[in-house]
Amino acid sequence: MKSIRLYFKYVSAVLTSTMQYKLSFLLMCIGRFIVAFSGFIGISFLFSGFAGIKNYSYGEVLLCFSIVQAAFSLSECLFSGFKGFSGLVKRGDFDRMLLRPRSLILQVIGSRFELGRIGPLLTAGITLIVGIRTCELHLNIMRIITLILMILGGMVLFSALFLLGATINFFSIEDGGIINVLTYGGKDHGKYPIDIYGEGLKKFCTFLIPYTLFQYYPLQYLLGKTDNSMYAFFPLGTVVFLVLCYAFWRFGVRNYKSCGN
């Protein structure tokens, strides 16, 4: 409870700082909205030429796109502290966090809060509505639960990847650029249901980095391509991945070597 209170204090401090630069904040919101929205436009253009990709229609792809976009933006909004983690280590801010009697993760999360992510979230909202309308999805309780679980599961997975990327900084004081392939790459390519990329990549995205748990499998249920309602709860599996990443993070903290002064 106290931690949540502290988190909101952190966020309000960060927001107060951001508001000091009003124009920059506004431009960031608009810029990010345009970048995210161009993804939507891209899909629209693509489907003006094709009727479907594999067995997915325009509306179904839009739905998939909006869910991945929402999950990623929420995760980036809340966990962006981990994105800039190499900076925290290099500037010595992480040393300061070690000197405070609070959870390190809470402090890292609290160090940054990207309100500019409202832009992509707006895109996600618009595409979600357009997607549901286009494929005339009938929203019953079970489908709404599936939808929410997918977004939350994706959020957990992307957050775990950000955490993983940060942890790499403990072992080499350089950016974990390789992780961007998994986070940004995952977001960009995850806008299409993963099975269109073939069986090999689907396996990779199930057993190594479990994207399919929040994307491909529950999507099958959401779109009525399967009646197996178990698929709706697959997104919960991403929590296991988060726990593994957290264990790795703990190991990294124990091996931390501060740099210079």
Binding site: R5, L6, K9, A13, Q20, G92, R100, P101, N261
Partner: peptide, 26 residues
């Protein structure tokens, strides 16, 4: 702990706000 070459205060907010945050942290 005071590091002369590093700041522990939040850069863009008034000092008193940093203090309030530290009150919460500790």
């Amino acid at each position: 702990v005071v590091f002369g070459q590093r700041s522990q205060l939040w850069w863009d907010i008034p000092v008193i706000d940093s203090f309030e945050l530290l009150k919460e942290i500790y």
